[in-house]
Each structure stands twice: as C-alpha cells, then as structure tokens.
Simulated scan of single mutants.
Amino acid sequence: MIIQVWSDLLCPFAHVAIHRLRVAREQLGVEVQLDHHTFALELFDGPHPRPGTDSEAVGLGQLEPELGFRLWTKPDWTYPSTVLLAAEAVHAAKEQGLRASEELDHALRKAFWLESRSIAHRQVILDVATEIGIDTTALAAALDDGRARATMMADHAIAVTDAIQGSPQFVLPDGSSVHNPGIKVRWEGPFAAGYPIAENSDPGWAERLLKQAA
C-alpha cells in the first residue's frame, strides 16, 4: 500500500504531518509506504525566506516538541534559500527503494530543522545520506547526471494544477486526498514578521487516514 506525499522540504506543516503519519504507521503496525513527490514552494514564491521559516517554527514547534524545531543557528549566508537539489535527491533515492527515499526525506528535514544544516549543498545532502545508510556512490552519480531532475519537474507540472492544493498533501491509493490535515492556524501579524498560532490540532487524523487507505 502506497500513499503519495506532496510537500516541500522546508515546509514546517509538512514536517509535522509526515512525523504524525510515520508515528501512527508504527503504532498500528500497518504496511504502508510513502512515495514522496515535490511541491516546490520556491518555484511558486521564489527563494525560501528565512524569516518565514523561523516564524513558522516558533508556532508549530509547540505542536510536536519532540520533533525538535529550532530557529536557524548557523551563519545567515549558509541558509538554504533553495532545496531543489535536495528534493531531486529524494527522487533519485527511489532507485534504492521507496523506503530509502522516505528515510532520506526524513533525514534531510531533521538536518535542516534540528541541526541547521544547509541541505541546499551537494556534500551536505550526501553526508546526510551516508549517515542513514544510503548508497551515496549511486546517489551522487544520479545527482551528477541529473537523471531525477525531469521527474521532479514533472511533479511541478502537476503541482501548478488544481490536482494538488499545497504542501503537504496526501494522496491515497483510491485517488482521494487531503491537504494539510490535522492543523488549523491563524497568523498573529503578517507572514515572516508575526507567527502562526494553532487554533486546532488533531493528531488522530493520521490513524484515520491509514485505516481509510487500508
């Protein structure tokens, strides 16, 4: 059983939702694979703004403290204003299986949100992959010849249509989907200057989604 996950690596809402889905999968003991697809926010809005991600981390970090949301702590010039290469790596890792791709996606999110690592950089991506046991020789070859780039951009061609609303969105085997489940927020102040306040958080959506998919 496969659930498609459409998201951006620097989207904190996706980080929370994917974490909740992974936890629910483990608790239920169901055989579900996550097939990651790219909803590249930077191709809609331009380079990722650090004030935006910092402010969202402040608000959403309260929902899942164990995720370890942190503000960016490294020098400003190392902040990853693009993560297209990292997203391409997640696609390229599918050559080693969907599980490898899922674990690389998860590790890259942790590297950014928890450790302030610049996941825009090729070597950082490969270092993260090495740490989780990915075949980095094969991954490096895929990045260098760009074999997954067309697949990633094909995702963008779908993302600009009405088929995908945003990051994150989960598409079930029957074709039904849900966008940004379990979180309803309002903004205190303008985006990147204020911060989101969770008005409603429902972690139980993940268990219901998995049961529906099954």
Rank of each mutant, 00 (worst) to 15 (best):
A100G: 09
A157Y: 06
E207Y: 00
W72T: 04
G68K: 03
A92I: 02
I183A: 03
S176W: 11
N200A: 12
S116L: 13
R149K: 05
D76I: 04
P181W: 00
E56S: 12
L34G: 00
P168G: 11
I2L: 10
L60T: 10
I132K: 04
H179P: 13
V5T: 12
P181H: 01
P181I: 00
N200M: 10
T82Y: 06
T136M: 04
S101L: 07
E102R: 04
K74W: 04
F44A: 11
Q96F: 04
T82P: 02
W77N: 14
L143M: 08
T82D: 05
V128T: 11
G46T: 00
A57E: 06
W6P: 03
V90W: 02
T151R: 04
F44K: 14
L28K: 05
V30R: 09
T73P: 10
A140I: 08
P190L: 07
P168H: 10
F39I: 09
Q165D: 06
L63E: 06
L114V: 14
F112I: 01
T53H: 08
P51E: 06
L139C: 08
M1I: 08
E207V: 03
A198L: 02
L84E: 11
K94P: 10
T130D: 15
S55V: 03
P47M: 01
V23Q: 10
A138D: 13
H37R: 14
M152P: 01
A159P: 12
S81T: 12
K110E: 07
L114A: 13
A163L: 15
W77F: 13
P65N: 03
A142T: 01
R208F: 02
T161D: 11
D35S: 05
A150H: 13
V83M: 07
G68S: 03
F13E: 13
H19N: 14
T161C: 09
L60I: 14
F39T: 04
W113T: 06
Y79C: 07
F13Q: 12
G166R: 02
R22V: 03
E103P: 05
R117K: 11
H106E: 15
A87G: 11
D76A: 12
I125R: 07
Q4I: 03
P12G: 05
A86Q: 14
R149P: 02
L98M: 13
G52C: 08
P51M: 02
T53K: 07
V32T: 12
P80Y: 00
I197P: 08
I158D: 15
D35Y: 05
A206T: 06
P181D: 04
E64G: 00
R109P: 09
I132S: 04
D54V: 00
V90F: 04
I183R: 01
W6A: 00
D135Y: 04
A214S: 10
L114Y: 06
Q27G: 07
A107N: 13
I164Y: 10
Y195A: 13
L41M: 13
L104V: 13
D145V: 01
H36C: 06
F13P: 09
V178D: 04
P47H: 00
A142P: 07
A111I: 05
K94H: 08
L43S: 06
T78E: 14
H106L: 15
E131Y: 00
A93V: 10
G182R: 02
G52E: 10
E103W: 02
R117T: 01
W6L: 03
L108D: 01
H179A: 09
A93D: 13
